[in-house]
Design a binder for these strands. Sequence first.
DNA 1: TAATTGACCGGAG
DNA 2: ACTCCGGCCAATT
Length: 104
Amino acid sequence: MKTDDFKTQIYQLLASIPSGKVTSYGQLARLAGHPGRARMVGSILKHLPAGGKLPWFRVIKSSGVPAFPEGTPSFERQVTLLREEGVSFNAHNRVEKAHWWRPN
DNA sequence: TAATTGACCGGAG
DNA sequence: ACTCCGGCCAATT
């Protein structure tokens, strides 16, 4: 089992997340068949090829908030992109449960 | 080569 | 809701 296979799996899953839905690092890792590798998913997203079209912004922490610290440019960018897709946040930047992706 | 860091997570207290 | 902890392991220092 090579590292690149896991990365490719994550790319696939990422591309299959529907617009207007969100998922977590840990859930992607589980769906890829590697529970416990949430940090690796984070690492993969961090190093996504620049200019790519993968929806990195649809991935948030299992707690329901973006992984970036509030107030940073990345945080704002992610929130904006999700809002444009219809994802709503509560007063504490938490994504409503109804927006979570439920793969069949 | 070794140590540290980090877009994380779930359980326990 | 929060902190502390151990597990995870590629990338960076």
